[in-house]
Amino acid sequence: MSTNAPRLATDDPVLFAFAEEVGSDGAIAVAGGRTRWSQGGALAEGTRVVEAPRGVVEYKPAEMTVCVRAGTPVAELEAALGEAGQRSALPNRGGTVGGAIAVGENHVDRLGRGAIRDSVLQVRYVSAEGRLVASGGPVVKNVSGFNLPRLLTGSLGTFGLFAELILRTNPRPEVSRWLRGQGVDPAATFDGLLRAAAVLWDGESTWVHLEGHGVDVDEQSRALDRIGQFEPVEEPPPLPPESWSMSPAQAARVDREKTGDFVASIGVGRVWAQKPQPLAAPDPVVRGLCERAKAIFDPTGRLNPGRQP
């Protein structure tokens, strides 16, 4: 690479090969683990499906950053980070890094790990024109230019196809403990804790995920004992397939009539349910902006046709 090249330029042939494979015409999509394949609508028939390049490129534990290719399974990333006692904010449910960020769904421990979008520091993606584009930066704090990583996180690959990402990592806590309480008030449970990694509620039981120093987890466990009767459990409850979005206050009083069996993430507002959430009509101004963005970033509509974030 020439010394005058922009600092974010890459010369990784693997990425250029991916850009070439994507090309500049014809409908195209990237398959990851297909764990959320139907989200946002069915992919249009006849769409060419490719895979993104794979592998952890560079992991810097002391910087708490990792550069990883989009096709890397989340499990493979987590294994690499685990060697230095760290982890990411990505949900690990059989998919790829690029897929997780294209979908934008948070880890069930959203409160403990932070939002997935806050962990995306830099993106490299292939544009509708088949060009490699970079945005963001390789360091943990950055306001250099417009924030395309935010626009692309959760955009279901409709603005560009992820090739490589730099993510923020975080230390793994010393102790991790799930507890379950029966008949306790989920909102009071959430309020009674300084920092839970997750508080889940299915209408009867309340699950609490405590993480951190052993002494802190013990103290928070004692705080729970003052709220109600909690006992240690191995893991969180299985999550129903549909996903609802509501305010945290509403999530603490979900109406089972509407949702069917559910598990609500208290303090977050995500509710996993048996029934799908009735779609509210989108605000016309916001919808107009989204359509305009799509027309500008992908004028021929070739990226993930049929899907709408």
Binding site: A115, L151, R270, L289, P309
Partner: peptide, 15 residues
Amino acid sequence: GEIGPDETGLDLRGA
């Protein structure tokens, strides 16, 4: 954005 999980749809808030 929204007073909630805000993890689906385009993140115009973040942009």
